[in-house]
């Protein structure tokens, strides 16, 4: 259980996820046609957007990243989902905040978990219990 001060810290971080427009966005009565289009543009469709020069650095792969890649691929191999479902869930359905806020393979594993629940292979409660169990196992060493 998070302490009350932990909870306050989580709320503060959450509040910062609001898109950086300069308008209040808590359920507006109406939005402009341009805003409607902007919200509905799939977050992964970034080609042509402006951005500054970048350092194109290399990144060493984490073990969990390799495992995530393989788990998602094997679920595809076994016909549990197809690649277009994967792209839809992991690039679009999660929304812009998670799309930009999560690591690359974080989106992949989020999508796999979501798919298993959506397709009724597991229940959400099973998933939550499993996450808690794995966490406890690792905390115990």
């Amino acid at each position: 259980m998070p302490s009350r001060s932990d909870l306050k810290r989580l709320y503060d971080v959450g509040a910062q996820l609001a898109p950086m427009t300069h308008q209040q966005q808590d359920w507006p009565y109406e939005i402009s046609p341009d805003a409607y289009k902007a919200y509905l543009q799939p977050p992964h469709d970034v080609g042509g957007q402006a951005s500054g020069p970048s350092v194109f650095e290399e990144k060493e792969e984490e073990l969990w990243e390799l495992n995530t890649y393989v788990t998602c691929e094997v679920l595809g191999w076994k016909g549990v989902w197809n690649s277009e479902e994967r792209r839809r869930i992991g690039n679009n359905d999660l929304g812009a905040s998670l799309y930009y806020g999560f690591p690359y393979y974080g989106r992949w594993i989020w999508a796999a978990a979501r798919m298993l629940v959506d397709k009724k292979h597991i229940s959400l409660m099973e998933l939550l219990e499993k996450i808690a169990e794995v966490k406890a196992r690792h905390a115990a060493g």
């Binding site: 289009k37 509905l40 543009q41 799939p42 469709d45 042509g48 679009n92 359905d93």
Partner: peptide, 12 residues
């Protein structure tokens, strides 16, 4: 076509 939910056709 309008965008809704998913696309592999880039806006550009």
């Amino acid at each position: 076509l309008p965008n809704l939910y998913y696309s592999r056709t880039q806006m550009y």
